[in-house]
Simulated assay, not measured.
Amino acid sequence: MPVATMPPHRHAPGSPVRPRGLRRVARRLIVLVAAAAVGAGMIAVPAQAEPTVDEIEAQIDKKWEELEPTIEKYNKVRAQLAVNRKKSSELQKKIEPLALQSELALNRVGDLASRYYMSGPSQEIGALLVSAKPDTLTEQLTLLDRLASQERKQVEGVLAVRAKYDGEKQKLDALIATQTKQQSELAAKKKQIDAEIKKLEASMPKTTVKTAGCPTINGVVSVAARKAIKTACQQVGDPYVWGATGPNSFDCSGLTQYAYKSAGIYLTHHTGDQWNEGKAVSRADARAGDLVFFYSGLSHVGLYLGNNQMVHAPRAGKPVQVSSINTMPVAGFRRPG
């Protein structure tokens, strides 16, 4: 007998049937459920990482490169303003007695004119002329005429000096007005940039900053440099405050000015002026106590300690500290005194 066979591609009785369409529907349902789970927060999605402290510090440092030149320019205008106000005050003190002197001289000339040319000689002069010998009469008249001439010259000289001082004071007053305006403009710009830095600093975790003290100094160091180094190192840990020159807070040029002031050497509170107030020194010849400057615009300065180390006031948020000079582009060295 022939053997019966099952038709090809047919399911055995009782076996489940899974059409392709059903599988596609199932996959879609899985995708929709997963999306709903993500929306409900059931499945974690990697969040964007918060910036690290180092990254925030780098942002602040970059912004500070923009701010510090403005602060130093402000310091320059303020230093010039103080010098010119002092000059103006000194000139005013000189002008006041000159004004009185010129007024008295004019009164004397007027008195001479009245006595000798309008009303005639006084009784004393008349007696002198009567008692004078004939050969001395001409000399006496010449003397009186010369006296009047000297009075006129005195007045002319006083007025000339007074006019000179008046002219100089007018120039200084105009300069002071200009610099006062510049000071206001720079302060406004500084305030704007400073606000951006404060926003960055607000996102930083609160930490205690510990700074290392100054290292032992070896080698040739002048008496003034030793005093300046000692003074600057005593300020390690003091806060940075722009425009501050001590004794409890500093900006960069304020710290170097304060350090060398203790050694009897006065530096202007401005990095550019401090660059010009010192003797140029090569990096190879630099020694402890020299000033080290940074950036092409000379916007930062520190007190060199040797071995590529310095003590300086870095920026807002960072206290006076010892650090490497290689963290910024070195512009050069100068030796005060």
Rank of each mutant, 00 (worst) to 15 (best):
A12P: 09
G14T: 11
V17P: 00
P19W: 12
G21F: 08
R24K: 08
L29Q: 10
A37R: 08
G39P: 02
I43F: 05
V45E: 01
A47K: 09
V53P: 01
V53S: 12
E57R: 13
I60W: 08
T70I: 13
E72G: 03
K76A: 12
K76I: 00
L104G: 01
L104S: 04
L106F: 08
V109Y: 14
S114V: 06
D135P: 03
E139A: 15
Q140R: 15
Q140S: 07
L144R: 01
A148N: 06
K153E: 09
K153H: 10
R162T: 03
Q170M: 06
L172Q: 13
D173F: 05
A174P: 01
I176T: 02
A177D: 12
Q182T: 09
Q183W: 04
Q183G: 00
E185R: 09
A188E: 14
K199A: 13
K199H: 03
K206L: 12
T207H: 10
T207A: 14
T208V: 15
K210V: 13
A212E: 13
V220E: 11
D238H: 12
V241E: 03
W242E: 03
T245H: 03
S249Q: 14
C252P: 02
Q257F: 08
A259L: 02
L267F: 03
Q274M: 13
K279C: 02
V281A: 06
D285Q: 15
A288Y: 11
G289N: 04
V292M: 07
F293G: 10
Y295W: 15
L298A: 06
L303K: 14
L305I: 07
H312T: 05
A313R: 13
K318S: 14
P319Q: 07
V320E: 02
M328W: 05
V330P: 04
A331C: 06
